[in-house]
């Protein structure tokens, strides 16, 4: 294994651990409780999930209808199963299954 790869991995990995764990261990949320930073943090979760959804679906959006169709059926399946069962796991699996099935039928 090359030392360059190991060095890059160790620096990036150590930073990832610090970003994920230190704010919890240092009680950053309590320091922010109630104030403007508290409201900022409360909005971070919904903002992050909305961002990650848009970022993950954006590359699949295309005017090419046959390529768009699996995205549409997959999205509708997630919406349908979510409103019927209120289960994140089932809605996710249904979306992926509908997407794959559409590719299989029309791809």
């Amino acid at each position: 294994m090359s030392w360059e790869l190991l060095t890059v991995a160790l620096i990036a990995g150590a930073a990832n651990w610090a970003f994920r764990a230190l704010p919890i261990l240092l009680h950053a949320d309590r320091l922010a409780a109630g104030g403007r930073l508290g409201r900022f943090l409360a909005a971070t979760g919904p903002a992050a999930i909305a961002t990650l959804f848009v970022a993950s679906i954006l590359p699949s959006l295309t005017p090419d209808l046959p390529r768009l169709l699996p995205v549409v059926t997959g999205t509708l399946a997630v919406l349908g199963v979510w409103f019927a069962r209120r289960s994140v796991v089932l809605a996710t699996l249904a979306g992926a299954a509908a997407h794959g099935l559409t590719v299989w039928l029309f791809g």
Binding site: P46, I49, A50, L52, F53, S56, I57, S60, V71, G74, T75, A77, V78, L79, W82, R86, V88, A91, T92, L93, A94, G95, A96, H99
Partner: peptide
């Protein structure tokens, strides 16, 4: 994408 959409709905 399906997981993020389901989480967003939740």
């Amino acid at each position: 994408p399906a997981l993020f959409l389901a989480l967003l709905l939740s």
